[in-house]
Design a protein around this nucleic acid. Structure first.
Ligand SMILES: Nc1ccn([C@H]2C[C@H](O)[C@@H](COP(=O)(O)OP(=O)(O)OP(=O)(O)O)O2)c(=O)n1
Ligand SMILES: [Mg+2]
Ligand SMILES: [Mg+2]
Length: 596
DNA sequence: GCGGATCAC
DNA sequence: TATGGTGATCCGC
């Protein structure tokens, strides 16, 4: 996606049932031939030839021919629940995706990863059995009970949080520019990859991160819009300007979603959360022409889950009581919890934990604590209790970006051709880093082979840099040029002035090497000088060169004052302090923990 | 400090 | 024919 820095999110939805508030207007969804018919199945799946390839049901198989049932077990990311997918024939989608993927290197790599996850799950189950057979779970049950009690004591029901998430954001932006698009199934991206799709296209199973050529099999009439980030950024700031009126300290998490603490706003207006959510949605739609959905709850995690329940153009209010929250997690599939993805869902499922509330049940909380790392189990228990961040975002944490990277996919290359790609990438990275006034010393090269296997190679430099030359020199040493790659990328992290380095700053400055000086290239006359930001010798005079830096910055965005030399530039507050912090928690990675 | 894996948009 | 780009975190070693 775009520059906006970290944020979490996930869509997915819980049983749409319980919702007290439905989407507003009748809206889209109405006409536009819903879904695809059975007969289209064969067409979508037949490669080239005109074989009948009859639908699965047809029992009259010809002689020894065996039906390929592989699709049943192919759980691609495209078949899980997602806003706009209720009426989709999931088995049909699964089958079409499978049939159009199965012989590709990409597919084989997915299979490899899935098998790896399976091994991990089995290892976990093995450890569970070991614990059971040795009757060691009792101790964990006890410590889990204590942990749960401690967590429960932190429950904070005093805030009202809104999570505002734009509907089919990129696609809606294009529909705004060309209203004729609004009536037809449309996706943003191209035959290679789709960023998102409007809700008409979603009826066919078309969705984010799906290759366009597969989407075309699902929906032959699908129209594509090439992406236009400038457009999305413009619309995003329009939306944020509105949201800031309801909470000047709102948190932006990516271009299309924000968290608002409206506790005091509600107080001041003497309004109900329902009414305010409605008001904000109307306001956004009136001024931008875009629809959004809002989730309302006492903390950010729950609000985020709720914003998906009545998408598109809807809202969901989770009442602010312990009972309501626990009832909610009791029917909440773990997959809906932000941070629990495909793999973690499989792991939990293997343990018989399917609903969030299961994670804290008397019978399994101990298991969670026993099998997962301290961080992971803490996060899982919190999810089960419906606890999340509800206070002001940490001033300190997530204060800024921690890395910056550029990567590109291309027709498989090696040798000289690959060297050229690497050079291009380093040039782009230099651009981006100079724009932001960043220099860093951890360099990582990312390589993806034609088999889609990803490898990274990294090292720490003895100096900070953002010069394309320096980065290229070291990236080259980290890269394998002797086999075909389909992607290469470079990431820089460990920024000058970052926390890790704060206390050490003076010491570092004494011990860190200087980047090897440039051979003082001729340059014209006498005018050149050594620019600290570029970390290289430039031909212009100092004044000229600094002007150039200035112009360069202004061209792209407005920066706050004080940007002398290499100091880190600050975005000139879009609305207030829209810090793009990932408000969630530290979920992710739940690996087997060392016993004891 | 490094490399792999997972997750989110 | 054909499966993206950016950023973050966590864990084991
Ligand atoms: N794998 C992804 C997921 C999303 N996006 C982009 C396109 C989306 O428009 C935008 C916002 O992501 P959402 O998950 O909020 O999805 P949408 O806004 O498109 O749809 P929804 O109505 O489900 O929120 O981010 C992307 O480029 N790649
Ligand atoms: Mg959205
Ligand atoms: Mg979103």
């Amino acid at each position: 996606m775009a520059s906006e820095a970290g944020g979490r999110a996930s869509r997915e939805e819980v049983a749409r049932a319980m919702s007290p508030h439905g989407g507003g207007e009748p809206d889209m969804a109405a006409e536009a031939g819903g879904g695809a018919s059975r007969e289209e199945v064969a067409r979508a799946m037949s490669h080239g030839g005109g074989e009948p390839d009859m639908a699965a049901e047809s029992s009259g198989r010809v002689d020894g021919e065996k039906e390929d049932e592989g699709w049943r077990s192919y759980e691609s990311v495209f078949t899980n629940q997602k806003a706009g997918m209720d009426d989709v024939d999931r088995d049909w989608v699964k089958k079409v995706v499978y049939e159009n993927s199965k012989n590709s290197p990409h597919f084989r790599n997915e299979q490899r990863k899935a098998e790896q996850a399976t091994r991990r799950i089995q290892e976990m189950l093995r450890r569970k059995e070991a614990l059971l057979s040795q009757n060691q779970l009792a101790g964990y049950d006890q410590s889990a009970a204590k942990l749960v009690a401690e967590l429960e004591a932190t429950r904070d029901l005093s805030h009202w949080w809104f999570h505002v998430d734009m509907d089919a954001f990129y696609a809606s932006c294009h529909e705004l520019m060309d209203p004729t698009l609004a009536g037809v199934p449309m996706a943003v991206g191209g035959v290679g990859m789709i960023s998102t799709a409007n809700y008409q296209a979603r009826k066919y199973g078309v969705r984010s991160a799906m290759p366009g050529f597969i989407a075309l099999k699902l929906c032959p009439d699908l129209k594509f819009c090439p992406s236009d980030f400038a457009l999305y950024k413009t619309k995003a700031s329009e939306v944020r300007a509105i949201l800031a009126q309801y909470d000047p300290n709102f948190l932006a998490a990516g271009l299309d979603e924000s968290y608002l603490d409206v506790t005091s706003c509600l107080e001041a207006r003497g309004e109900s959360p329902d009414a305010l959510a409605r008001c904000i949605r109307d306001h956004v739609r009136r001024e931008t022409g875009l629809t959004c959905s809002i989730g309302v709850a006492c903390n950010r995690m729950l609000a985020k889950i709720c914003s998906d329940l009545n998408k598109p153009n809807g809202e969901f209010v989770l009442q602010r009581s312990r009972e309501a929250v626990l009832a909610f997690t009791s029917s909440l599939p773990v997959r809906k919890v932000p941070g629990i993805g495909k793999v973690t869902e499989r792991i939990l499922s293997g343990l018989g934990l399917n609903l969030a509330r299961d994670l804290v049940s008397r019978s399994s909380a101990g298991l969670v604590v026993a099998l997962f790392s301290e961080k992971a189990s803490g996060a899982l228990l919190r999810a089960g209790l419906g606890l999340g961040r509800s206070g002001a975002p940490d001033e300190d944490a997530g204060a800024g970006r921690k890395g910056i990277s550029v990567e590109r996919t291309f027709r498989p290359l090696r040798g000289k051709g690959l060297e050229a790609k690497l050079a291009e990438i380093c040039a782009k990275l230099e651009d981006a880093m100079m724009d932001k006034g960043l220099r860093a010393r951890h360099i990582t090269v990312k390589m993806k082979g034609t088999d889609f296997v990803v490898r990274t190679k990294s090292k720490t430099l003895p100096f900070y840099t953002n010069s394309a030359e320096a980065m290229l020199q070291h990236a080259t040493k980290l890269t394998s040029f002797d086999s075909d790659l389909r992607l290469i990328g470079v990431r820089m992290a460990g920024f000058e002035g970052d926390a890790v380095e704060q206390g050490q700053a003076t010491l570092d400055s004494l011990f860190l090497d200087r980047e090897p000086e440039e051979p003082a290239v001729s340059s014209v006359g006498g005018g050149g000088y050594f620019c600290e930001t570029c970390k290289k010798h430039v031909a212009e005079t100092k004044a000229e060169h600094e002007d150039w830096h200035l112009a360069r910055s202004l061209q792209r965005e407005v920066w706050s004052a004080g940007g002398l030399g290499a100091s880190r530039k600050q975005a000139a507050l879009p609305s207030k302090k829209a810090k793009c912090v990932g408000g969630m928690d530290l979920f992710v990675t739940k690996r087997p923990r060392k016993m004891e």
